[in-house]
Design a protein around this nucleic acid. Structure first.
Length: 286
DNA sequence: ACGCGTGCCTGTTGGC
DNA sequence: TGCCAACAGGCACGCG
């Protein structure tokens, strides 16, 4: 399931395939995969993909609208296509005219600077993923975007600590709250809490300054290590070249219920925290 | 205003 | 062996 490291890896691997490409056509194959605020994919015809970036778990295609087919979009600045892959979303390019698959939600026809044609598919088995194309003004109407918290890799101890102060819920629920920090999902929440030795049920505001600092450092370390290994592939995740990540081989707790703790050797336990499956070590995490 | 539970969606897994 | 409930889980939404 794509979280920050996986989306970062998709951005890095997709970039060489789509940067500089013009969108010559687009077809939406499932209405619910498009946010109601979004422009229609076909409205993006004539736009050029100038960059691929990431914000939290969102993948962003930056667009130059100078030659947009839609007259009222022509010259718009800051036009972007945001994609949330949720659990099973994938972005991959294929040869021109490749037929969409059973789970293809949107097709973009691209032409690069050399005139080479290809197709970009947004595939999503479970159809939880979402696309939103729009100007910065439109993006601001999207509450998820507007309220998205800071990037964890750029967060200071002081800013992180301040965001926990008012939180009376479990620290794990707080880590998963995209308004508090952007990009953390179930895997990296469990892994960072284990690394920091903190019980996932602890109330966020009850953590000491030292624990908060340690948790942020562990979170950054886990995210950076995962990015360096091209993310984690549990089942569905692939980068833009169809390759799996390797970080799943380094999990200390996620998916290891009943197995031996790598630190103390006792059995890891599985509980529910904030309605989500959580694996932790009762001995090492206090 | 905040925290919690539920629904969305489909393929895979595990128990009987 | 076959069937079906449970599960995976990010986020919107409704409730108290």
């Amino acid at each position: 399931m794509p979280e920050l490291p996986e989306v970062e890896t998709v951005a890095r691997t997709l970039r060489p395939h789509v940067e500089g490409c013009a969108i010559t056509g687009a077809t939406l194959l499932r209405d619910s995969s498009l946010h109601p605020l979004s422009l229609r994919p076909e409205d993006l015809r004539g736009c050029v993909i100038t960059g691929v970036s990431r914000r939290g778990k969102l993948l962003l295609l930056e667009l130059d609208a100078a030659k947009a087919a839609r007259a009222d979009l022509r010259g718009a600045t800051g036009l972007r296509l945001a994609l949330h892959l949720r659990m099973t979303g994938r972005l991959m390019t294929y040869a021109a005219h490749t037929a969409p698959g059973p789970h293809t939600r949107c097709v973009f026809d691209l032409t690069d600077a050399q005139g080479q044609e290809r197709r970009l598919f947004f595939d999503d088995v479970r159809a939880f993923g979402l696309m939103l194309a729009g100007t910065p003004q439109t993006m601001q109407l999207w509450s998820f975007w507007r309220e998205l918290g800071p990037e964890p890799l750029e967060l200071t101890d002081a800013a992180f600590s301040a965001r926990l102060d008012s939180k009376n819920s479990a620290i794990k629920a707080v880590l998963l709250d995209q308004k508090v920090i952007a990009g953390v999902g179930n895997i990296y929440a469990d892994e960072s809490l284990f690394a920091a030795g903190i019980d996932p049920r602890r109330k966020a505001a009850s953590l000491s300054a030292a624990q908060r600092s340690r948790l942020l450092r562990c979170l950054k370390d886990v995210l950076e290590l995962s990015i360096s290994q091209c993310g984690s592939s549990i089942r569905d995740y692939r980068d833009a070249n169809g390759n799996v990540g390797a970080f799943q081989n380094s999990f200390a707790v996620y998916g290891r219920n009943g197995q031996a703790c790598k630190a103390c050797g006792r059995a890891l336990e599985k509980i529910k925290v904030a309605g989500r499956a959580t694996v932790y070590c009762p001995h090492c995490q206090k």
